[in-house]
Amino acid sequence: MDLALQLLFTGIGIGAVYALVALGFVLIFRATNVVNFAQGEFSMVAAYLMVVAVEAGLPYWAAFIVALLGMALLGVVFNLGVYYPLRHRSYLPVIIATIGASILLANSVLAIYGPQPQVLEGWFETPGIQVGPVYLDSQYLLIIGVTICLVIFNFWFFEKTLLGKKLQATSQDKEMASLLGISVSTMIMITFIYSAVLGGLAGILVAPVLFVSIQMGSTIALKAFAATIIGGFGDVAGAIIGGLALGLIETFGAAYISVPYKDGFAFLVLIAFLIFRPQGIFGERVAEKA
């Protein structure tokens, strides 16, 4: 039982990281109908920005704000440089452009900062607390807390605010949204900014656990992408549930079946979903008229 509780906590913690990155995938997919394969690199860039800001002597909270502002700027540049010029093309050139952008981002950070992996201290001085038989890592607690807050915020933002509804309208039907006077390009710009900030937030939060390295983004993004498919592409709740499910599956699978095949369990579930429920947990079946 003690073992299961420890695994439950860790599985939810790592799953929350996948969920945060998956949220970024979903938001951009809803707005543009393309998958942004640079979403993982957003996490990596933000973690490096945080390291640079802390090394420059800024207090942790100020470094956090600077890093997120940097990510907002990256969101703008990404939209204007990668998506906007290709917005009238089919989804394929845009997807290829995002893959290219991810390689560019990774190699740019490598060229500017060098290959050295970095240690980023967490928010709390205490690394964790022992509650009975379970050790609660303070960073994972923070990640879980932030994920819960974001779920609530997203619900409020998309369902209760005018801007959120405009974003939803844009993601559902751009032409109709445009006819209703919504500036589609502005909404897509906001989506890219929000997704970049979300990806960055995930990177900053997970950096004290996984260290800051050029590869950190791609490692997380692969799992987050799987989580997005499991949850249902295009669904915010699906991204969260998919991420958490993936974290739990791989943690429990590793503990009770096989450690070396930990990643295998995650992708086995992904394959099962693609075969038996391709629309994911929350996705709706799309039928074509004869």
Binding site: I14, L210, T219, V259, Y261
Partner: peptide, 16 residues
């Protein structure tokens, strides 16, 4: 106990 390279979490290994 074996593990796959580039793991993000070693909790199951430590518990084993």
């Amino acid at each position: 106990q074996g593990y796959a390279n580039q793991s993000q979490d070693f909790t199951p290994v430590v518990l084993a």
